[in-house]
């Protein structure tokens, strides 16, 4: 079994305008930088993007927003991107804001073959409007549906040609659930290793969820908020 492809261009083969994509990452941490660059080059548009955030103006999904390639964003928090806010308030961009835990669970459900689930998050708010409510253990819950995507694009630290993946630090975030929920899942990794080099006990995403894998290059890993403390003298 060999799921390796040469590069981001080969990995993104078949992504067309008006498709639904999932993109892993939290803020700029753990985003598939190589594939985002490729999507900008590829100039596909009318995309529906499912991603926790929308990048910043000059990086991450902000690059696709600048070129107006995104028709609709499904996210939980978009506060770091002025261009996003402008496009949303002017009505150019369709936006579905959903609670972060529901977003994670909806991706997981999509990948795990569960069409829907109940959660207390969002009851009594705009998020609950039009949704079925049921009471369990004396509390109201909303019926939320699973999410899937034509392509899920994730970023991992290490991977092998079977598609097995290991993430590093909090760059893990949404990547494992999104990897499960793509009809085709692309994994870009910092280091592609031989099967057997990853300890089976410590693999985060089993390769069965991944269809294409490649070793990315030139990772910038931009830091959004560089916070430090002073050394005590």
């Amino acid at each position: 079994m060999d799921k390796r492809v040469a590069n981001a261009k080969a990995a993104c083969e078949g992504i067309e305008s008006n498709m639904t994509l999932m993109l892993g990452g939290f803020g700029l941490c753990g985003i598939p930088e190589n594939c985002i660059t490729e999507l900008v080059k590829k100039n596909v548009n009318g995309l529906t993007c499912i991603s926790n955030n929308a990048g910043v103006d000059e990086f991450g999904l902000g690059l696709l927003l600048q070129k107006k390639q995104i028709k609709k964003m499904i996210s939980s928090y978009v506060g770091e991107n002025d261009e996003f806010e402008r496009q949303m308030l002017s009505g150019e961009l369709e936006v579905d804001l959903i609670p972060q835990g529901s977003l994670a669970a909806r991706c997981y459900a999509g990948g795990a073959g569960m069409p829907a689930f109940f959660t207390p998050a969002g009851f009594g708010t705009e998020v609950g409007e039009g949704k079925e409510v049921r009471w369990f253990n004396g509390k109201p819950h909303l019926l939320e549906s699973a999410l899937t995507a034509d392509f899920a694009i994730v970023k991992a630290w290490k991977g092998d040609r079977f598609g097995n993946l290991i993430y590093k630090g909090t760059a893990r975030n949404f990547n494992p659930m999104m990897a499960m929920a793509g009809r085709i899942t692309i994994a870009e990794v910092e280091e592609l290793v031989e099967p057997g080099e990853l300890d089976p006990n410590f693999i985060h995403t089993p390769g069965i969820f991944v269809q294409r894998i490649f070793q990315g290059k030139d990772y910038e890993k931009r830091i959004e908020q560089r916070t430090i403390r002073q050394r005590e003298s």
């Binding site: 926790n52 669970a105 959004e224």
Partner: peptide, 26 residues
Amino acid sequence: ADLINAGKQTITAMPGAVIFDSATSF
């Protein structure tokens, strides 16, 4: 860059810390 908090600030991990995905977190 691979170790941030929900405010996107760089952080450190204490001894005994654990990292997990967003579904586990919620």
